[in-house]
C-alpha cells in the first residue's frame, strides 16, 4: 500500500481520474439540461456511439481532429432532433424511446464501422497541450512542473472544454431566461404554459443541448482512445444518466460524481498494477466503481428531489 501513497503515483492517479471523467462529464452535463426540462434520455449511450464513430471515421479519412469533433457534434444534433420529435411532439414514452435510440446507435454505429472501415485501425489521439501544433512549445515547460504539470497542463483541449462547461451550464440554468424556462417546464409544465412559456420549444432546445453534448462526449472518447470498435462506450452513457441523479441535477455535483467515478476506477486499476489488489480479486475490483456509484446514489440521491415533471410528456388541455 505504501507504494501508492507516493507523490508521483498519487499525482498520476489523479491525472488519470481527470482524463477518465471527461466523457462522463460531457454526457451527464447535457443530460442534466434535458432532465431539468423534464425529459429523461436513456439513449445517451447510443448517441455517444454514433458521435464516436462519426468523429473516428472523419479523423481516419481527413486526419483533422477539429473536423472529427464537429462531426460528432452534428451527429448529436441530428439525433437530438429525432429524439425531440419522438418525445416532445409525438409524446412517446421517454424510457422506451430512449432505449430505442440506444439500440439504434449501438447497431448502426457497428454497421457503419463494418461497412466503411472493416478492421480496427488506430488514429492519432487528441493532442495534449504540449503537443498542439504550432503552440505546443509554449506549454512544454508547464507540463514538467511537479504535481501541477500532470494534473493541470497534461490534458487535451476537450478536457478543459468539459470542465469549463460546468460553470457555463450552471449559469445557463440559473441566470438566463432560457434556464428559468427549462426549470419551469421541468417542475410544472402546465403552470409554465399558462404563463406563456412554450413547453415544447423549451424541451426541444434542452434535448438538443443534451444530445449535442452526448455526441461530443462520444467523439471525445473515440479521439482520446484513438480507436473505434463495436460498443466502444461500454455503458458510459448509462453511467452518465446515473451521475445526473447522483449530482442532484446540479452541474457542480454532477462534475463531482464524474470525478469520483473516474477516481475510483483509476485507483482500482492503479492498485491492481501495484499488486495492492491481489490477482484473484480482479472480478470484485472491477465491480468497485459501479458499487460505489450505487451506494452514493442510495445515500445522496434519496435526499435530493428531482424535477417534478421528469419523464412526464406534456399535453396542452
Amino acid at each position: 500500500m505504501s507504494q501508492f501513497f507516493t507523490l508521483s503515483v498519487l499525482t498520476a492517479t489523479l491525472a488519470t481520474a481527470i482524463k477518465f471523467a471527461v466523457p462522463y462529464l460531457l454526457a451527464s452535463l447535457g443530460e442534466t439540461i434535458g432532465q431539468r426540462s423534464g425529459v429523461l434520455n436513456l439513449g445517451v449511450d447510443g448517441i455517444m456511439l454514433l458521435g464516436a464513430f462519426g468523429a473516428y471515421y472523419t479523423v481516419l479519412e481527413t486526419d483533422s481532429h477539429l473536423l472529427g469533433l464537429a462531426v460528432g457534434l452534428i451527429i448529436g444534433l441530428l439525433m437530438g432532433l429525432l429524439y425531440a420529435v419522438v418525445t416532445v411532439f409525438l409524446h412517446a414514452q421517454q424510457g422506451i424511446s430512449g432505449i430505442g435510440i440506444f439500440l439504434f446507435g449501438l447497431g448502426f454505429s457497428d454497421l457503419l464501422f463494418q461497412e466503411l472501415v472493416g478492421s480496427v485501425k488506430p488514429v492519432k489521439p487528441l493532442p495534449t497541450l504540449d503537443k498542439l501544433p504550432g503552440v505546443g512549445g509554449i506549454f512544454e515547460p508547464l507540463v514538467d512542473i511537479d504535481i501541477l504539470g500532470p494534473l493541470v497542463f497534461d490534458h487535451d483541449l476537450m478536457t478543459y472544454t468539459a470542465f469549463l462547461l460546468v460553470p457555463v451550464v450552471t449559469w445557463l440554468l440559473n441566470k438566463t431566461t432560457f434556464g428559468m424556462n427549462v426549470r419551469a417546464v421541468g417542475e410544472n409544465p402546465q403552470a409554465a404554459d399558462s404563463l406563456g412559456v412554450s413547453v415544447a420549444r423549451t424541451r426541444f432546445i434542452a434535448i438538443m443541448f443534451g444530445c449535442v453534448l452526448a455526441g461530443l462526449a462520444g467523439a471525445t472518447l473515440a479521439l482520446q482512445l484513438a480507436v473505434f470498435q463495436h460498443n466502444l462506450t461500454n455503458g458510459i452513457g448509462f453511467i452518465a444518466v446515473a451521475l445526473v441523479y447522483f449530482g442532484a441535477w446540479q452541474p457542480r455535483w454532477v462534475m463531482a460524481g464524474a470525478l469520483l467515478y473516474g477516481l475510483v476506477t483509476a485507483t482500482r486499476l492503479r492498485w491492481q498494477s501495484l499488486d495492492i489488489i491481489p490477482q484473484g480479486a480482479s472480478d470484485i475490483a472491477a465491480m468497485t466503481p459501479a458499487i460505489i456509484t450505487i451506494l452514493a446514489l442510495v445515500l445522496l440521491a434519496s435526499r435530493a428531489r428531482g424535477p417534478a415533471a421528469l419523464t412526464k410528456p406534456f399535453t396542452r388541455h
Binding site: K19, F20, L225, H230, N234, I236, T265, A285
Partner: peptide, 16 residues
C-alpha cells in the same frame, strides 16, 4: 505487473 480490467471489450479500461 498484471491487471485484469474485468472486460473483454472495454477499450477505455484497457487504455487506462
Amino acid at each position: 505487473s498484471i491487471v485484469y480490467t474485468g472486460s473483454f471489450s472495454d477499450v477505455a479500461l484497457a487504455t487506462t
